[in-house]
């Protein structure tokens, strides 16, 4: 596996000022995926955006990895429901026009 599109976890820890243990904790909870390249931990750059969100929740609100997992789960449900509500609203317009 090549390093292209992968960011070393050590670099992320420096820039986001977080402990390696937190990143590991997020990986243990299945929130991100750490891969080993040449025996060093890396994260794919596509995961940086959700990782930033997790770190904001951790740093701004003191939420640990398990809490973040729960929040993400609820947010997904919430977003699904918002979409469903939008669909139902547009369907309702059909009857309002009759």
């Amino acid at each position: 596996m090549t390093k292209e599109n992968f960011i070393p976890v050590a670099t992320l820890c420096t820039y986001y000022k977080v402990e390696m243990s937190l990143i590991q904790d997020l990986d243990d909870n299945g929130l991100i995926k750490i891969i080993q390249i040449e025996e060093a931990p890396f994260i794919h750059e596509d995961l940086i955006s959700p990782l930033e969100k997790m770190l904001r929740l951790h740093q701004d609100l003191n939420i640990n990895a398990a809490g973040i997992d729960t929040i993400f789960h609820l947010l997904n449900r919430f977003e699904d429901m918002q979409k469903e509500m939008k669909t139902l609203k547009s369907r309702l317009r059909i009857y309002e026009h009759e």
Binding site: T11, L12, Y15, Y16, K17, S49, E52, L55, R56, Q59
Partner: peptide, 10 residues
């Protein structure tokens, strides 16, 4: 804003 920037903003 104690979080440093690394990835570019969306």
């Amino acid at each position: 804003g104690n979080q440093s920037k690394f990835r570019g903003q969306d």
